[in-house]
Amino acid sequence: MSQTFTLDGKTIAFEPGQTILQAADAAGVFIPHLCYHPEFKPHGSCKLCTVKVNGRQTASCTMRAMPGMAVESDTEEINAERRALTQMLFVEGNHYCPSCEKSGNCQLQATAYHLGMMSTHYDHFFPNRAVDASHPEVLLDFNRCILCSLCVRASRDVDGKNVFALSGRGIDTHLIVNASSGRLGDTDFTLADKAAEVCPVGVILKKRQGFAVPIGERTYDKAPIGATTAGEAC
């Protein structure tokens, strides 16, 4: 028999061991998230999935569901904090969506739309990280990386290749390629790798595939992020 907690007043059933985010997901309730992916262990870096549990904020991707919890998610207060976090991610990188091949298919952008983000608000960092075009089939633009580590986890845990890693400290933390040259072309990375498809933003891009999907038919043109399969927006 499954147990329950409440999420914004709605009763959610869960199996012991599930996180709040997993249980909400299974119940068809959207909680914004960027670094969580159902196939991998949670990472807890983006903090977009923050909810209030019994009055205290916590990451719903790492917090186990417990019977009788009172969870708040879709509130003005929490959405305002999520918006601020999204703005921080935008100013930390160079997110020029008008020329980004991921535009319309990007989870960061779609999350910003979902949260009604009209501006980047903070002063921009304008980082300068060199693009890696050494691989014949894939291009890396590190200036859009949100350090979600999905590519790291996919390459290590699924592909067994350990192609990517996070390196450095503080604002200098950045994604690196595990090759003595530091170049993707000098690894055994291929397009068939799981890591080639998990990036939620426009860092890991297939070459010669950009702008193939007409505007209006991209993922988030058709339905906003968080819209359920039934087509109803969260």
């Binding site: 008008p98 910003a112 979902h114 906003p224 927006a233």
Partner: peptide, 8 residues
């Protein structure tokens, strides 16, 4: 809001 809100 969606679909009028676009960055591109």
């Amino acid at each position: 809001e969606h679909p009028l809100l676009k960055f591109d």
